[in-house]
Structures are given as structure tokens and as C-alpha cells.
Design a protein around this nucleic acid. Structure first.
Length: 439
DNA sequence: TCTGGGGTCCTAGGACCC
DNA sequence: TCTGGGGTCCTAGGACCC
């Protein structure tokens, strides 16, 4: 491994070193800090026998892979059998999900020692604006070095940092710096740094956009910057086209932001290839609705729109959604709405015999006081006549179940109808980690 | 033997209102 | 009787990100 902090520091400087920075606006004070192969690195930290070895977190699917494993082509999201094929010596570890959260939080605490302007974007990644910290800790490159040294010494994890004038540039710089390095892009060297890089390093360029750009002969960020904005908008649509052409010429107005509340809450379950029986669909949706509404209730929220996604045997998927006049948040109501939507989706595709995934999400969220409860009878008189319990009763039953689970664990109690027999491909602890607000 | 789980944003058509 | 223009909300799908 690279010694802490000292090695692997690069600076993209074309002319004389230390040219004065053009304007205050133009200073490179944004840092993007990104932990390397995060889950795998934590495992290697916890178990020294794993260090230097090809390891993956997961089992049937790779959730994260160490750099040693990545060298053989193993990637996150890959099926476990495929990873073993590519890397016969790979060692799979179950995953200490609580430890990931704890280590991620500790790293963020270190970052906040340098500046309060920290925008955490995920468990293992954050932007910083260090403009106000220079007089305390030195120039931004020195701050990057100090941050990496502290994270390495105090926590034991490798961290890569990009330093630049904008978030977009800093993010690209940290990707270029990996693993365990840092890259500073001086304002005068931005073009020289970006032009040769492949377009897919840009924020917002995924497989689809990359294909379309390649078809138009655009492969590098330099190609993109040279292309007329109007032609990009024709090629990619107005929003994506103008966004990319701005980023390519280094216009990125994004600032470091405070965390926002989530706009939607969802859950999904991959099922393998299963026959789309009404029982399977019902039981799975009930499980998902229960997860989603439990989180909503915990946050004191409820939502007016319920969306269901059904992915079929051929991996194509459809979504159906409905917006109701009163925000809903009980397990039973969301289950009912989701079941109706799934029934419609399946009825629209009678040729599809199998489902491979079901998802439920609730959006159009509102704050929900404990006293303010949904009234399902207003939503659907048919259901009311059929004898469904009233909203208040649903809500209080759900809150009781939530309380039991908080004390004894989530599997301690369930609606009888909610027992989820579907293939749980991923541990509950991983779901809970992914759920967490990064703030 | 096709690929987990949790999110955001954009587009486009239609309904509806003024 | 036919017509305009603008705005908001809803739905479905797609692309992208970590």
C-alpha cells in the first residue's frame, strides 16, 4: 500500500508553477473527497488477513470489490458466479454494514474539522469548500493532503481527493486521482486537464448518452467542448444537451449545499424468475409497502402518490402510479393501492408470464402529524364497503408494530399476510444502510 | 446464466383551468 | 361558434447517480 498521504500527489500545471490565480471567483477551493473501494477497504481494515487480496462484499451479487479484484474485471453489481469466473481466487465476505456507516461518519467528522462547508453526497463521498479555511490550514492542495493523512492515520482508510474550481472538475479530478491519490486542477490548466479525458467521466454521461455521443464522433471531453451547443441539444435533448455543453466548457454554477429531505421513499425486491401469481405479487407488495411506510412513519411523513414498478421476465419494466387526494402512510392502505396498480400493469401485459422484480414507492410527501390520519373511506368507497379498517385504526396498529420492531428487531413481528417468502438476495442490513439519509 | 437496492431529474402528452 | 395562450397537475417512461 501507498504510505499515508505522501505519495501519489499530482498537480496539473501547464505553465510556471504557482501562477497567480486570475480572480477570486476563479480559485480552486472545491474539494471532492471519495473513499476508495469503501466497503472492501473497511473489510480489509477490520481483518488484516484480507489486505492486499482480491475480495468482494456480497454473495449472489457483488456489492463492492477491492482494487485487487477490480484488476481482474470484477465490478459492483456483477453476479457472484461471474466474479468467481473472472477472479478464481476471490474471497467473498458477508459484510459488516454497521461498520460501514460508522467509518463513513468518522471520515465526515474529520472533513468537518477543516470546514463547515461539507456536502455529503453518499456514505463515502463529500464535497468541501475550503475557501474560508485557507488562512488556517494552507492552500487547498495542502488541505487535501492533510485530510488524506488524517483519514489514513486516524481511521485507516485510503481516500482520494480532487481539488478544483467547480464541483464537476473536483469530482473528475478525484476519479483521476484514484486509488489513494490527489489531483489539483489549477484554473489555467482546466482545458489541458479535461480535453483528453473520455466523456463518460463527466457527471451525467451514462451508457446511453455515451453511445449517442460516440455515434456523433464525440469521445473526449475536448470533442464535447468543441461541439456547438445547439447540435448537442438536438442530439441529447434540451436539458441534457445544454447541461453537458455547459459542463464541458467548465461552467458549473453548483454550490456546496445543505442536505434536503428526500422527495420519495421506496423499496424493491428482486425475485429471480418467478411466475406472476397473485399470491406472490400480493405478499411481496405487502412486504415492500410495510418497509416503505414504516420509514415514512418513522420520519413523521406520508405521501399522496404511490408508484409500482413491475419488471418482467424479459427484464423490461413498466410503472403505474396513482395520486390520491389525502396523503397515505399506513401499511394496509399502501398495500391496497399498490396491489391495484400491479394488477393493472400485469393485465396490460398478458404476454408476460414472469416477474423478476417488484418495487413500491411513495412520493408527493407531506409532513404528517401524529393526529392527522388518512381516511381511506374517502378514497375508495368500494373498499370501505368491503370492510377495510378505518385510517385511524390502521395508523395506530402500524405504530404499535413499529415500536415492537424498534425494540426487538424488524423480523420480530409482522402482519400474517406480510410474511415475505421471496428470495431475499441481499441482507436486510444492506437495505437499511442504503435507506439512510447521507446527511 | 443477465444485474442489488435506494434515490433524482427530465420529457411528453393529456386533462383541466383561467 | 371558433379560437388563443399560459399555467398546473398527473401519468409513464427513460437516463443517471451512489
Amino acid at each position: 500500500m501507498v504510505p499515508p498521504g505522501e505519495a501519489n500527489i499530482r498537480s496539473y500545471t501547464m505553465g510556471a508553477v504557482g501562477w497567480p490565480v486570475a480572480t477570486h471567483d476563479g480559485e480552486a477551493t472545491i474539494l471532492h473527497a471519495d473513499l476508495d473501494a469503501f466497503y472492501a477497504s473497511v473489510e480489509q481494515l477490520l481483518d488484516p488477513t484480507l489486505r492486499g487480496r482480491a475480495i468482494a462484499v456480497g454473495g449472489s451479487v457483488v456489492l463492492a470489490a477491492s482494487y485487487e479484484a477490480r484488476a481482474t474485471g470484477v465490478r459492483a453489481g456483477m453476479a457472484g458466479w461471474r466474479a468467481r469466473q473472472l477472479c478464481p481466487g476471490i474471497r467473498f465476505v458477508g459484510g459488516h454494514f454497521e461498520e460501514y456507516q460508522r467509518h463513513g461518519d468518522r471520515v465526515m467528522d474529520v472533513l468537518r474539522d477543516f470546514t463547515p462547508w461539507v456536502e455529503r453526497v453518499s456514505i463515502d463521498e463529500a464535497f468541501l469548500d475550503v475557501a474560508g479555511a485557507i488562512h488556517l490550514f494552507g492552500d487547498p492542495s495542502e488541505i487535501a493532503t492533510a485530510v488524506r493523512r488524517r483519514v489514513r492515520r486516524e481511521i485507516g482508510l485510503p481516500l482520494s481527493v480532487g481539488v478544483a474550481r467547480t464541483k464537476h472538475l473536483a469530482k473528475i479530478a478525484s476519479q483521476v486521482a484514484k486509488p489513494d491519490g490527489q489531483v489539483t486542477v489549477r484554473p489555467l490548466d482546466e482545458r489541458a486537464f479535461l480535453d483528453p479525458l473520455p466523456v463518460e467521466l463527466m457527471w451525467g454521461v451514462g451508457p446511453s448518452t455515451q453511445r449517442r455521443l460516440a455515434a456523433a464522433g464525440i469521445r473526449t471531453i475536448g470533442d464535447l467542448a468543441a461541439a456547438p451547443g445547439a447540435s448537442l441539444e438536438r442530439l441529447l435533448g434540451r436539458a441534457v444537451g445544454s447541461h453537458l455543453s455547459q459542463l464541458a466548457v467548465n461552467v458549473d454554477p453548483r454550490r456546496i449545499e445543505a442536505p434536503r429531505r428526500a422527495a420519495s421513499v421506496g423499496a424493491q425486491a428482486a425475485l429471480g424468475q418467478r411466475e406472476a401469481s397473485p399470491e406472490l405479487v400480493r405478499v411481496t407488495l405487502a412486504y415492500l409497502a410495510d418497509r416503505v411506510t414504516g420509514r415514512l412513519r418513522g420520519a413523521g411523513r406520508a405521501g399522496r402518490t404511490v408508484t409500482v414498478r413491475v419488471r418482467f421476465g424479459d427484464l423490461r419494466s413498466v410503472t403505474r402510479s396513482v395520486t390520491v387526494p389525502v396523503a397515505v402512510g399506513t401499511t394496509l392502505t399502501v398495500t391496497e393501492l399498490a396491489a391495484d396498480l400491479a394488477r393493472d400493469a400485469l393485465a396490460d401485459h398478458p404476454e408476460q408470464r414472469h416477474v423478476t422484480l417488484l418495487a413500491v414507492s411513495v412520493s408527493n410527501l407531506v409532513e404528517q402529524g401524529e393526529l392527522q390520519m388518512e381516511l381511506p373511506l374517502e378514497l375508495d368507497e368500494e373498499r370501505h364497503r368491503s370492510g377495510s379498517p378505518q385510517g385511524a385504526a390502521c395508523w395506530s396498529v402500524d405504530r404499535s408494530l413499529d415500536a415492537v420492531r424498534a425494540r426487538f428487531g424488524r423480523s420480530s413481528i409482522d402482519y400474517a399476510a406480510v410474511r415475505f417468502s421471496g428470495a431475499a438476495r441481499v441482507p436486510d442490513a444492506f437495505r437499511e444502510l442504503a435507506e439512510r439519509d447521507p446527511s
